[in-house]
Design a protein around this nucleic acid. Structure first.
Lengths: 328, 328
DNA sequence: CGAAATCATGAAATCGGTTTCATAGATTGA
DNA sequence: TCAATCTATGAAACCGATTTCATGATTTCG
């Protein structure tokens, strides 16, 4: 591998001048520039990125944390982030926390060891107080996830509204017995806010909150199937159910059909995310502006890095949209 | 940020000794080791990865190329690769080529500039001859994709067999008019082999090959819908169709139902990949051992890096499995 | 026209580690 | 017992770039 020294020698100039050409520094005559270019060409030279990183103290790499990349919500987010980052000359390191606290903390070392210039968290497993110390080592921000204590830029969705418009829609369809499904993460404000929106819609319509219709541990298609069975076995089942994800909704629907229930007549179902599968099966759902959220987050991160902005709280809130289909 | 120098000073030792402790070199007395450990602890020291990379000439980072991370086939692959890499102490850089030749070449510079120790390609956009020169800069391997000229380790699926068992299944169900859908990439042996398998099954059964039933540009759900319309408008349409992906199959199915066709009676459909959606809607499909292919590839890559194996052709071939559901 | 500002270049310091080489004391073995 | 080997440590070289500083040539301007 040719080094900058080899190029300098071949061009009959100093390393400094070669470096200047590489970095488009002014104060290099066109003639020398040409000499250097030719030498670089001839030696098939490319600057060594490790050396550059060390000297410049920056890596042009950004880490993105997701629970699992196979979750379509997150993979869409990463797709957009990756493309935008590449456009701006940054690499993306993918960190899958697998919903594990340890894994998340392990990956945080990346920032500490200066392997990345910044971190975007799309979900948090640990307490904020465990994450905060890492802010000393580089910029951290939240995208999708949010946390009241975190003094970092946050791009997020108005989950209260998300829960509200979904539930509201079911009420408008004439339902009075409305169930609610969610995961188990009690730390996350995403979950609690969405539930708040649900309660708000019920309260506004003067409908009671029935705790028996609150269903948990809902993440996957399989969970949805299980949840349908729970519903079917109730004495006084809900006639409509608000779910936290399209997968869960799809699972409920599938199992409902297996049991000869009609959707939406016997049970109306509303999903969340508007993943491709929702359109496919005709699921009413809440659409999230994933592209925008991802792009805004990456923009913010790159700005923070390049302008060396101090870390501070800054909220960018985006809205949901209801997509009505045949499941309600 | 504390450096190794600071630690050395605090411990009253040389940088060398500190480095030895970090790298678990023998020949350090327990007492000095303790001194160093304490100093590191006190200063909250972590070695700077850029410096380490520069000196050691390795990055502990692997790049994985995928066309788009939102394609579930690739996101599953990346999930497994990412987790396995992390387990072995490697990072994953995600490179989305977006099916673009330029993008692919741009990313190849990563290897040249020594930002990664190796490259795993899961699909190739360019001619192999355009990629080959980069082999000088580090190990490259193929996973899923394969290419006859490439003198690199390749983990792949027997696509001929994939095309064969799918088509064979349709024939066994009594179909004689069997259509075939695929993308447009003529470079890829993945595509051509799968088609070979299809032809082989037809030939064995003495069935004719009808070029009108060969449908192209099939990638997405939308494409599937379009393809159904093409089929519906044929004078002599096929009664069954083999598709290159579950999404396309799902699109065809959805549009078929919209037009009051019954599946599988009016049209049998077989997908490819066995994505979650296939189970959901009851699509017969060809299952790929994604986990295994991904793990084997990552294993091979890490071995190549760590043992500095010379680049040479090595084929690891895995098999498909038919998953029968109600669409056939 | 002479001082100040600008342009062009290279030597040397620097980023923060690891590796090589030299050295000295402690052990081993013939 | 004395040479050979092993253990333990540090000084200095090195990885390959960028940045600072110094210097001389050229241009600008009052």
């Amino acid at each position: 591998m040719a080094t900058i020294q080899d190029v300098a020698k071949l061009a009959g100039l100093s390393r400094t001048t070669v470096s200047r050409v590489i970095n488009q520094h002014p104060y290099v005559t066109d003639e020398k520039k040409r000499l250097v270019m030719n030498a670089m060409e001839e030696l098939n030279y490319v600057p060594n990125s490790s050396a550059r990183r060390l000297r410049k103290q920056q890596t042009e790499t950004i880490a993105v944390y997701v629970p699992r990349i196979t979750n379509p919500f997150f993979s869409q987010m990463v797709e957009v982030m990756g493309n935008y980052a590449a456009e701006k000359g940054y690499q993306l390191i993918l960190c899958q926390t697998s919903y594990s606290r340890n894994q998340e903390i392990n990956y945080l070392e990346l920032l500490k060891t200066k392997q990345v210039d910044g971190l975007i968290l799309t979900s948090i497993e640990n307490e904020w107080s465990d994450i905060e110390p890492y802010m000393n080592f580089g910029p951290i921000m939240l995208c999708n996830e949010y946390n009241d204590e975190a003094k970092v830029p946050t791009v997020y969705l108005n989950q209260i509204e998300g829960g509200y418009i979904g539930t509201r829609h079911l009420i408008e369809q004439g339902h009075t017995k409305i169930g609610y499904c969610s995961g188990d993460n009690t730390e996350s404000r995403v979950a609690s806010d969405r539930y708040k929106g649900y309660k708000k819609a019920l309260a506004e319509a003067g409908l009671p909150l029935n705790e028996k219709w609150f269903l948990t541990s809902a993440y996957s298609i399989e969970d949805g199937k299980r949840i349908f069975k729970e519903i079917a076995s109730m004495k006084d089942p809900p006639t409509a159910v608000f779910t936290g994800s399209d997968e869960v909704a799809a699972g409920i629907w599938k199992e409902a059909v297996n049991h000869q229930w009609r959707v939406p007549d016997d049970l109306a179902i509303i999903g969340f995310d508007d993943q491709p599968v929702a359109e496919l099966i005709g699921l009413t759902t809440i659409e999230q502006p994933i592209e925008e959220i991802a792009k805004r987050a990456m923009e913010q991160m790159i700005e923070t890095i390049e302008k060396k902005l101090p870390s501070k709280r800054k909220e960018i809130q985006l809205d949901f949209k209801l997509v009505k289909r045949r499941s309600t």
